[in-house]
Design a protein around this nucleic acid. Structure first.
Length: 570
RNA sequence: CGGGGUGUAGCGCAGUCUGGCUAGCGCACCUGCCUUGGGAGCAGGGGGUCGGAGGUUCGAAUCCUCUCACCCCGACCA
């Protein structure tokens, strides 16, 4: 490819609405352009990287025995009504009507469509295991699209669905996908972790997320310093610890705390550590108020609470409910004397003589004690893991915390969708049984963005070779000079013939301009052909990542680039 | 949806509070000269229904009403 005839609209200035580095660099490097909120045009450079990821995904899916299909973007409402998600999926599902007033939606995911396909075609245990996948554009009408390709409304996703005769067979399919995912992200050159995750709205019995480690990640994940345990903070378990305090209960005491509402303010005012206070939070679960206690220095994990309560709607109580339940304005809630059910985190179990709100304006209570002053209906693991916590799985480990970008998610679905859509088969005895499913997603366009979050410097992107739009750029410093043009063309031809994806910068621009563009776009290898070096038969090979520069003969440079590319792709 | 903010040339912005003169600046773009190892320099040039509609006024980018789009903070997720 000749740069002068290609389409790479780079820009020097950073667009003001791009927050994260991948968004800024993809815009500046001419990879993407925004069409509408969360909807992007993929320009040549961007598309090439996306295709690279797609191909890696495709190869590994095929290797794992999955079979590629392509399902429609437009889906009929009936299927969603049948699974019950027409009501549950909410506004994220973009709905519309055709000319005959029939209802449709833009597919945010394809459980219904594949399950429908399979229920029609798969009748016998002999047809399974079956794993169908596609790489396709999805649309989710996100509440708040942001960060460019990291959270678009339209995005490219690989989604696979496995169908098995029973739970054990489904576990095997799941393991295969899990291994395939590891290979995929390794091949993309990403630094990632597979973590245990909450299944969220897709449902099912268990799941793992594949997280690319990056400061800008929207998810918090924890991992053990010793063993393999790693989980999304939403899911991460806290190791229960035996109550340690043995202090004698002291008499309950009311103290005035004028205008002191938060843990921070009250602790400072009363000169007690946060850990000597109990946070009292009031929620509304499916319309019912619930009081939840957590030790003052910890955070409540709402997902754990929601799963414990088994409710579908959970929200922080509005001020009016708090006032109703406690009889006091927000900021002075405590468990003593309340009439509603009280749930508490394990961290509260061992507390003695602690501080809580007094359920009265400007009043807190000191020396509060369990049993004597109030009763807890149930203790459970309800708090977020904190760095340094003991590992729930091994004896020695301590928890470490990271930020991550979710690029893949694998789920064991069980029979959630097959039951709703009546996807059944006949077993060897001729008995009708429900199919067991799994589903496996990879955010392809997001993976490209995540890769940039992990690979950049002050000058631009630094692509790992496997997903770089081009492996090598030949920068001809003055293409108008006969010798330079000839040598550049020759190098370009030879590299291309050797299977290297190469772009020749033959533009009539100043050297600095070309270097800046090359660095911004992030091509891993650059051969600079300049008149001075060429007079001595030399060209320069520069490595984008290390900045290392080698002065080589033309032949050496071509051979070296070829070798580096082959090594990186094997 | 709730809260906050922004719409002026392709991009980044000034001008708006306090209405008035030809609507400005940097980058990008076009032409010429010059220059060629880290986003050069000089000269000339093109490009705007000031997001849209309505209103107030002798006069509106500026004031008022409505509307649309986009961005940021919360709930969503690949």
């Amino acid at each position: 490819m000749r740069y002068s005839q290609y389409f790479v609209p780079t820009v020097k200035e950073t667009p003001s609405d791009a927050e994260v580095i991948s968004h800024q660099l993809m815009l500046r490097a001419g990879m993407i352009r925004k069409l509408a909120a969360g909807v992007y045009n993929y320009l040549p450079m961007g598309l090439r990287s996306i295709r690279k990821v797609e191909n890696i995904v495709r190869e590994e899916m095929n290797r794992a025995g999955a079979i590629e299909i392509l399902m429609p973007t437009v889906q009929p409402a009936e299927l969603w009504q049948e699974s019950g998600r027409w009501e549950f999926y909410g506004k994220e599902l973009l709905r519309f009507k055709d000319r005959k007033e029939a209802e449709f939606c833009l597919g945010p995911t394809h459980e219904e469509v594949v399950t429908d396909l399979v229920r029609r075609e798969v009748k016998s245990y002999r047809q399974m295991p079956l794993n169908l996948y596609q790489i396709q554009g999805k649309f989710r009408d996100e509440i708040r699209p942001r960060f460019g390709l990291m959270r678009g409304r339209e995005f490219i996703m690989k989604d696979a669905y496995s169908f098995d005769v029973d739970s054990a067979a489904a576990d095997l399919s799941y393991d295969k996908m899990y291994q395939a995912y590891r290979r995929i992200f390794e091949r993309c050159g990403l630094n990632f972790r597979a973590v245990e995750a909450d299944t969220g709205s897709i449902g099912g019995t268990s799941s793992h997320e594949f997280m690319v480690l990056a400061e800008s990640g929207e998810d918090a994940i924890v991992s053990c310093s010793c063993c393999q345990y790693a989980a999304n903070i939403e899911k991460a378990e806290v190791r229960p610890v035996a109550p340690a305090e043995h202090a004698e209960p002291r008499p309950l005491e009311k103290v005035a705390t004028p205008e002191k509402r938060t843990i921070e303010e009250v602790a400072a005012f009363l000169h007690v550590p946060h850990s000597s206070m109990a946070k009292c939070l009031i929620f509304v679960a499916d319309g019912e108020p619930v009081v939840v206690l957590v030790r003052g220095d910890y955070e409540l994990n709402e997902i754990k609470l929601k799963n414990l309560l088994g409710c579908t709607e959970l929200e922080m109580a509005p001020d009016s409910v708090v006032e109703n339940v406690t009889g006091a304005p927000v900021g002075f809630a405590g468990p003593v004397g309340l009439k509603v059910r009280i749930i508490a985190d394990f961290s509260v179990q061992g507390m003695k003589n602690f501080v809580t709100g007094g359920n009265e304006k400007d009043i807190h209570l000191k020396n509060v004690n369990l049993e004597r002053d109030f009763r807890v209906e149930r203790f459970a693991d309800l708090r977020n893991v904190v760095p340094g916590d003991a590992c729930p799985r091994c004896e020695e480990g301590r928890m470490e915390m990271w930020r991550g970008i979710e690029v893949g998610h694998v789920f064991k679905l069980g029979t959630k969708y097959s039951e709703a859509l009546k996807a059944t088969y006949l077993d060897a005895e001729g008995k009708e049984r429900i199919i067991f499913m799994g589903c496996y997603g990879i955010g392809v366009s997001r993976t490209v963005a995540a890769c940039i979050e992990q690979n950049y410097d002050g000058n631009g992107i630094i692509w790992p070779i496997p997903i770089a739009p081009f492996h090598c750029i030949v920068s001809a410093l003055n293409y108008k000079e006969e010798a330079v043009a000839q040598a550049s063309d020759a190098i370009y031809e030879e590299l291309a013939a050797a299977g290297v994806e190469v772009i020749l910068d033959d533009r009539d621009e100043r050297p600095g301009f070309k270097f800046k563009d090359a660095d911004l776009i992030g091509i891993p290898l650059r051969i600079v052909v300049g008149a001075k070096n060429l007079a001595e038969g030399k060209v320069e090979l520069k490595h984008r990542k290390s900045g290392e520069v080698e002065l080589l003969s033309v032949n050496e440079a071509v051979a070296k680039v070829r070798a580096l590319v082959v090594a990186a792709l094997k």
